[in-house]
């Protein structure tokens, strides 16, 4: 099909030289369009192509925040990033059935070695320490390695007088490591406290979902706690609550908006504004030496 003027004799003298003259790109059928993987937005129910999602900070056009990987978040938020202790990994202290295999599978699937990435960074030119949990690694569950990395980060930040920015996403303590996972809650809390007592700033960004032992420890211990829109944040899981109490959960239960209403987060900040706002918060919370 061409865009030629509908004058019969012109067809003999006018020959299009290239595709553009034939009518441009719109004329070329795009067969890949329909086969491109899409994701249905749980908010507006539209199917959005993955490429469009990733080009838009993993958000839907309606503003729904999809989950993103730790590395995507680093490139979204940090100007520079120097990873610390990437080699701290879980072992299987209790000999829990299937745990080693599970770890191997998620390592391949997520491309990460553990459920948290820690490092030294600059956000909007503000130097800080950053930890970002990884939902694609056993739903960001906290075992010994995660607890150790976060504890080390706070100790490092205390020693170097740096603030800490932490992005949380977690299903809670990692049950495959039993009591040792539980102890990470106290261990990380201790490190947060020492950092705080040194007069240093800790900002948590709650992302979807932050649950269980992580909510009940370092996620809720920030000087300032912000959340992403629509992030689910709580202690007990919604299904467990429904089963135990037999009650229907209210609309918006455990969502960031509900936490804001009940006074448990300072602000809800959507992704496009995060970098700038975090930079400002870091700037306004400089430690007084």
């Amino acid at each position: 099909m061409s865009n030629l003027p509908n004058v019969p004799f012109l067809k003999f003298i006018y020959k299009p030289k290239n595709e553009l003259e034939k009518g441009g790109r719109t004329e070329i059928p795009a067969p890949r369009q329909s086969s491109e993987p899409e994701r249905r937005c749980p908010n507006c129910y539209k199917s959005v192509p993955l490429s469009k999602i990733s080009a838009n900070m993993s958000m839907c056009g309606c503003g729904y925040h999809f989950r993103m990987t730790a590395r995507q978040r680093i490139s979204l938020i940090c100007d520079t990033f120097e990873e610390l202790w990437p080699g701290v990994v879980s072992n299987d202290p209790l000999g829990f059935p299937g745990y080693v295999k599970k770890l191997d599978t998620v390592k391949v699937a997520s491309g990460e070695l553990e459920a948290v990435v820690c490092g030294k960074a600059e956000i909007d030119s503000q130097p800080c320490c950053v930890f970002i949990m990884e939902s694609y690694f056993m739903m960001g569950s906290m075992g010994s390695a995660v607890g150790e990395k976060i504890t080390r980060l706070f100790e490092y930040a205390t020693m170097n007088r740096l603030p800490v920015v932490g992005f949380t996403v977690s299903g809670g303590a990692r049950m495959q490591e039993g009591l040792l996972s539980l102890m990470q809650m106290a261990k990380t809390s201790g490190a947060v406290r020492r950092h705080s007592e040194a007069g240093l700033f800790y900002l948590t960004v709650l992302t979807d979902p932050t649950m269980g032992g992580v909510t009940a420890s370092f996620a809720m211990e920030g000087d300032i706690i912000i959340a992403e829109p629509g992030a689910m944040v709580g202690f007990a899981g919604p299904r467990v609550i429904e089963q135990t109490t037999g009650k229907t959960l209210p609309k918006g239960f455990q969502l960031a908006e509900s936490l804001l209403e009940h006074g448990f987060v300072d602000a809800i900040i959507p992704r496009p504004e995060q970098k700038e706002k975090i930079g400002k918060l870091l700037m306004m919370n400089k430690a007084v030496n």
Binding site: M185, A186, S189, G190, V192, R193, E197, G212, T215, A216, S217, F218, A219, M220, E221, V233, G234, F235, A236, V240, I241, T244, T245, K247, L249, P250, F253, Q254, S258, H262, G263, F264
Partner: peptide, 26 residues
């Protein structure tokens, strides 16, 4: 375990436990 219910969540069960860990260790 800590009480698991709608009201407990809305009044910050996670936050309350976190506060205890944070304070007790010091």
């Amino acid at each position: 375990g800590a009480y698991c219910g709608i009201d407990a969540e809305e009044r910050g069960q996670g936050s309350a436990i976190a506060a205890n860990l944070y304070e007790m260790i010091g």
